Computed example of a mutant assay.
Amino acid sequence: MKTAEKPTLNLGQTLEWLRKELAEMQVQDQRLLLTLRHLHSVLEELRAESAHWEDARSSGGASPIRARAGSEGRSRRPSSSRELAQLLGGVDSRRSSLP
Results as ranks from 00 to 15, higher is better:
residue 1 M to Q: 03
residue 2 K to T: 15
residue 4 A to H: 07
residue 6 K to F: 09
residue 6 K to Y: 07
residue 7 P to Y: 05
residue 7 P to E: 14
residue 8 T to S: 05
residue 8 T to H: 02
residue 9 L to Q: 06
residue 10 N to E: 12
residue 10 N to F: 06
residue 11 L to H: 13
residue 11 L to D: 02
residue 13 Q to M: 11
residue 13 Q to F: 04
residue 13 Q to I: 05
residue 13 Q to A: 15
residue 14 T to E: 01
residue 14 T to A: 11
residue 16 E to Y: 07
residue 17 W to Y: 12
residue 17 W to F: 13
residue 18 L to M: 10
residue 18 L to H: 09
residue 18 L to I: 14
residue 18 L to W: 07
residue 20 K to I: 12
residue 20 K to N: 10
residue 21 E to Q: 04
residue 21 E to T: 03
residue 22 L to T: 15
residue 22 L to S: 10
residue 23 A to L: 05
residue 23 A to E: 00
residue 23 A to W: 04
residue 24 E to R: 14
residue 24 E to P: 03
residue 24 E to L: 12
residue 25 M to W: 06
residue 26 Q to K: 13
residue 26 Q to L: 14
residue 26 Q to C: 08
residue 27 V to T: 09
residue 30 Q to C: 09
residue 30 Q to E: 11
residue 31 R to L: 14
residue 31 R to T: 06
residue 32 L to V: 07
residue 32 L to A: 01
residue 32 L to Y: 02
residue 33 L to I: 10
residue 33 L to S: 01
residue 33 L to N: 01
residue 34 L to D: 00
residue 36 L to P: 00
residue 36 L to W: 09
residue 36 L to N: 03
residue 37 R to C: 06
residue 37 R to N: 05
residue 37 R to Y: 06
residue 37 R to L: 13
residue 38 H to A: 07
residue 38 H to G: 00
residue 39 L to C: 00
residue 40 H to V: 10
residue 40 H to S: 12
residue 41 S to W: 04
residue 42 V to D: 00
residue 43 L to P: 01
residue 43 L to A: 03
residue 44 E to P: 01
residue 44 E to F: 04
residue 44 E to A: 11
residue 45 E to P: 01
residue 45 E to L: 12
residue 46 L to T: 14
residue 47 R to P: 01
residue 47 R to N: 10
residue 48 A to R: 13
residue 48 A to P: 03
residue 49 E to T: 14
residue 50 S to F: 06
residue 51 A to K: 14
residue 52 H to C: 13
residue 52 H to F: 09
residue 53 W to N: 02
residue 54 E to M: 12
residue 54 E to T: 08
residue 56 A to Q: 10
residue 56 A to N: 02
residue 57 R to S: 06
residue 58 S to Y: 10
residue 59 S to R: 10
residue 60 G to P: 09
residue 60 G to R: 11
residue 60 G to L: 13
residue 61 G to L: 09
residue 63 S to C: 05
residue 64 P to G: 02
residue 64 P to Q: 11
residue 65 I to H: 05
residue 65 I to K: 11
residue 66 R to M: 12
residue 66 R to K: 13
residue 67 A to L: 07
residue 67 A to V: 07
residue 68 R to S: 03
residue 68 R to T: 02
residue 69 A to Y: 06
residue 70 G to E: 13
residue 70 G to I: 04
residue 70 G to F: 06
residue 71 S to F: 08
residue 71 S to N: 15
residue 71 S to C: 15
residue 72 E to V: 10
residue 73 G to E: 12
residue 74 R to T: 04
residue 74 R to P: 01
residue 74 R to N: 09
residue 74 R to E: 13
residue 75 S to P: 01
residue 75 S to L: 07
residue 76 R to A: 09
residue 76 R to G: 03
residue 77 R to M: 08
residue 78 P to S: 07
residue 79 S to R: 14
residue 79 S to M: 04
residue 79 S to I: 14
residue 80 S to K: 07
residue 81 S to H: 08
residue 81 S to P: 00
residue 82 R to A: 03
residue 82 R to P: 00
residue 85 A to Y: 03
residue 85 A to G: 01
residue 86 Q to A: 15
residue 87 L to A: 00
residue 87 L to F: 02
residue 88 L to M: 11
residue 89 G to L: 12
residue 90 G to Q: 05
residue 90 G to T: 05
residue 90 G to D: 01
residue 92 D to M: 04
residue 92 D to A: 08
residue 93 S to A: 15
residue 93 S to P: 04
residue 93 S to D: 15
residue 94 R to D: 07
residue 97 S to R: 09
residue 98 L to Q: 15
residue 98 L to N: 14
residue 99 P to W: 08
